[in-house]
């Protein structure tokens, strides 16, 4: 087991290297540099700026330098913001994004699994139909529509919740409700559907027939015999769900003005702030890789057939 974990941890390194390399070169081959708007600057000044950020060196040297810095945990200076370096901006905004992401994910998992189970157990009743109709809404309506519509209903018309802001503002924890629901809805819906279908499939399986033939109570059959097997597809979906929540948070942070990492990502993309973009991508990737790793570990705990060799 320990060996397996170590092997998986080592396996993350190439993925991370690939991400850094791809994003580094995409950015470098792009037409136009970060200081394009300052073209009117005297040649000398421009050269000084480029020298300061080592942009005058050959690309491969820049790449090596960047890689070395990243390995030391230094994401470099921002090209746009002079006050602080990239590390500062990322690590002040990251906690906010993480809070939002974790809440959204928890909502999606807890409610998704319960709704899916309920639907499967009450298959072809109004409970099932209602839940599944709701789920298909969650899947069909993009979160950038859900967000503004929820804002429009609950903040502007009903006035129950704030339109935007963050927990350190006047409204406190209330500010979390709309963004986390918006972010979680799509994943709730997917998990609920997945859970329902895998639950139904498991309920049809031979070993559940055996359990019934043994005279076990329905609740025992459901929670002890069915749940574990039915959870497996949901657990494997968690990896893509994490990726989706990270991407979705970019939009949700935009809509609800959450001071998170996503805001920096969009801004820096528009600004061509190379180092900040790269920094955000690396941080997001690391989170994603770690999450996928955790998912694998959970999976191997659930399924005794997985071997660690």
């Amino acid at each position: 087991m320990t060996k397996y974990i170590i092997r998986r941890l080592l396996g993350m390194i190439p993925t991370l290297l690939i991400i850094i390399t791809i994003s580094f070169f995409i950015i470098r081959i792009a037409p136009g540099g970060p200081f394009d708007s300052e073209r009117s600057l005297p040649e000398q000044v421009l050269q000084n700026i480029e020298a300061k950020y080592h942009l005058d060196e050959p690309v491969i040297v820049q790449y090596g330098r960047y890689l070395f810095d990243v390995l030391r945990g230094d994401l470099g200076p921002s090209y746009r913001y002079q006050d602080h370096d990239v590390n500062f901006y990322i690590f002040t905004s990251l906690p906010n994004s993480i809070i939002l992401g974790i809440i959204a994910l928890t909502i999606a998992i807890v409610f998704g699994i319960s709704a899916g189970m309920l639907s499967a157990v009450r298959q072809n009743t109004w409970v099932d139909y209602t839940t599944m109709s709701f789920a298909i809404v969650g899947i069909s309506v993009p979160l950038f529509v859900i967000g503004p519509v929820l804002q429009w209903i609950f903040a502007m018309n009903l006035g129950w919740l704030p339109t935007s802001g963050w927990i350190d503002g006047d409204y406190g924890l209330k500010t979390l409700i709309l963004p986390s629901i918006t972010l979680s809805l799509g994943y709730f819906a997917n998990i609920a559907r997945l859970m329902r279908s895998s639950m139904l499939e498991t309920l049809r399986s031979d070993y559940i027939r055996t359990a019934k033939a043994k005279g076990l109570k329905n609740s025992v059959i459901l929670f002890k015999h069915t749940l574990k097997g039915a959870l497996l597809p949901v657990v494997s979906y968690l990896g893509p769900a994490f990726a989706g929540i990270i991407t979705g948070s970019v939009v949700v942070e935009q809509i609800f003005r959450v001071p998170g990492l996503g805001k920096f990502f969009v801004q820096s993309s528009f600004n061509r702030d190379y180092t900040l973009i790269m920094g955000v991508v690396i941080v997001y990737s690391v989170i994603l890789i770690i999450m996928n790793f955790i998912v694998d570990i959970i999976y191997s705990f659930l399924d005794p057939r997985i071997s660690y060799k």
Partner: peptide, 19 residues
Amino acid sequence: DVIYGLPYMLLVIIMMAIF
């Protein structure tokens, strides 16, 4: 597998912003 592990929507965003 490797591309699957990437936050590829983010890469798309970068590509769109830059190109």
